[in-house]
Write a protein that binds this DNA or RNA. Structure first.
Lengths: 342, 342
DNA sequence: CTGAAAGCGCTTACAG
DNA sequence: CTGAAAGCGCTTACAG
């Protein structure tokens, strides 16, 4: 950061003006081929690197996009981030990342620091606390300063902006029906991520399905840090629960692990479907049937939408994508899940 | 990004000079309490946000640190990133992330874009290709422009800079010995990440251990995308291999899964130890014994070192941390692993 | 305690 | 084809 050569020094060395150097380096047609060549050679020789800060200050944009996610450890967010980064580098943008750790305070701080002009737009998935408290005042600066916002996965109706997510309730409804169709008689919904919008939607879908089918309902919230949950074994043993829809990957794995350790068979005694497809789902024995949340695709789409918005290619009114998803049937559910479309 | 109010406008509104506004906002003791109050009130009223670009251009630092990692999906890197981000936000720094996807080209491009003055320093873990080709020319700009570099986990001897990693060879040696001590007679080393420095070190440690103990050796490189590997089952069935040290988490899980699916028992027929501790290791049945790679700690330490270097708190010569690690004994190895220190 | 001025490193109308 | 000048939004010696 210290001994960088600047346009001014280059100009002095070449005995031309700063403007000429700048234009030559930027391939301006105004400059003669010879001087362009001279300038570029000397620049290369001196390892000239343009100072983006100065460029950005002039051009009013930074070509970098801020990303605030609640966590990075859950596979879903790692994969979404991967999608965001891939697409960003494809389109010539950089990303700057903050992790809210599911905390509203941290999220608000991140918005504050990112807004200070370093970022052309902000992509977010809201923290659990933000969603639970329905608190959105900390996003106000984004609107008053007109920095574009794209929300993905954990979105909020109250916020006016572009949104990317999956149809969580429909998906949960279908997963519940699939469980029923595969022969389950009593299905419970297990959530380790209560108070998030996605959990609400999934729960709603589950409740709709059991209602339609006249089955009995059972919703359990649990703390992933305190597993195995006694409620689980009690449900299987005494309440005849033989199917579980879990709101996230870790939750589903914990359910399976506890049931297996207690001597139940999967899928014979208990069938399980989880949300979010990740490595654990794929490699666990038995492998877990999941709702594919299209993490990478959500990420890519979020970034693409952001760039389109920044570059003014989108209509004024916010757009909302609800991605089509599907259930990946593996070994935690019984064969012969009838396709509901049949 | 459009309608932000600036110092100049604030100054005009208040009928004072720009300098006064700037100083008032920065709590300079030069300014009288009354005007400070006036200035701050008006600034708040107008949602004034300082333009970091301009600030940074003056102050010559950005308080942001670039991070280039080979991938984000492996648990190790996600966790390391989490450590980096946590510590950064603690110390008032931001991070800007690039993912090289194990590609030298992408890594070089990322260095190029990050170096353009947006970043006070660079934290990297090298891509597989970079390490395989021992190509380090693309890092040259960092040195010629004096931007500090901290390498973690996947480091290279040839590069002069601060380094954070674990003692991979020692750890592999101890893991191999632990396997032997638990009763294994023939141990193989399985790697799905060949050509990386960490793999070289781990292989070396493994070879040292079998040499010391006079056991026979077997090194297998495999492609995680093409598993189950026939070699694995052949080794167990025909070559009497009864212990495996795997170079990474996914590799270890794939080994266990394939062996279990083929009807072998773990740990009775085959004991397994993997490198890198993650969710899969913890939740797989049986749970996997692993070498704890201290991902989060490596990340935190890398960032701390970076900040100390930037702020001139470190001696000129590069420092190198080799973190102490330990083996987490779970159920993929037999009981009674004698502690080598006994 | 307040302000005028220079400057960080660029870009870009405008003149010549 | 080249250059002088203004300006992006700040900070900070220096004067008063």
């Amino acid at each position: 950061m210290e001994n960088r050569i600047t346009l001014k020094e280059l100009a002095k060395l070449l005995n031309v003006s700063i403007s000429t150097v700048s234009k030559a380096l930027n391939d301006s047609p105004e400059i003669s081929p010879q001087t362009q060549k001279r300038v570029k050679e000397l620049a290369a020789l001196n390892h000239y690197v343009p100072n983006m800060l100065a460029q950005n200050l002039k051009t009013r944009h930074t070509k970098t996009i801020g990303v605030i996610i609640p966590a990075i450890l859950p596979h879903f967010f790692a994969e979404a981030l991967h999608g965001i980064e891939t697409k960003a580098s494809e389109l010539g943008y950089r990303i700057i990342i903050c992790i809210s750790n599911e905390s509203l305070k941290k999220e608000a701080e991140s918005v504050q620091t990112l807004i200070k002009g370093q970022v052309d737009g902000l992509i977010m998935s809201l923290s659990q606390e933000t969603q639970a408290k329905m608190e959105i005042d900390h996003l106000q600066p984004l609107f008053s300063h007109k920095v574009p916002l794209v929300l993905f996965d954990r979105v909020l109706k109250q916020i006016q902006c572009d949104k990317i997510h999956i149809n969580d309730s429909l998906q949960a409804e279908q997963a519940t029906m699939a469980l029923l169709n595969s022969g389950c008689k009593k299905i419970a919904y297990f959530s380790g991520i209560s108070d998030t919008s996605v959990d609400d939607e999934r729960k709603k879908g589950y409740l709709d399905a059991v209602k339609i089918l006249g089955a009995s309902r059972k919703v359990v919230n649990f703390d992933p840090k305190n597993f195995p949950d006694k409620k689980l074994l009690d449900l299987i043993e005494n309440k005849k629960v033989d199917g579980i829809l879990a709101s996230d990957e870790l939750g589903a794995i914990l359910v399976m692990k506890s049931a297996l350790n207690a001597g139940f068979r999967i899928p014979e005694d208990l069938s399980v479907i989880g949300f979010t497809n990740g490595q654990m789902s794929e490699h666990f024995r038995p492998s877990l049937s999941t709702v594919d949340q299209h993490a990478e695709e959500q990420g890519k789409l979020a970034l693409e939408t952001m760039v389109d918005r920044i570059e003014g290619k989108l209509p004024a009114e916010p757009i909302e994508y609800k991605l089509e998803t599907s259930i990946i049937h593996r070994n935690s559910t019984r064969q012969k899940l009838y396709d509901l479309a049949d």
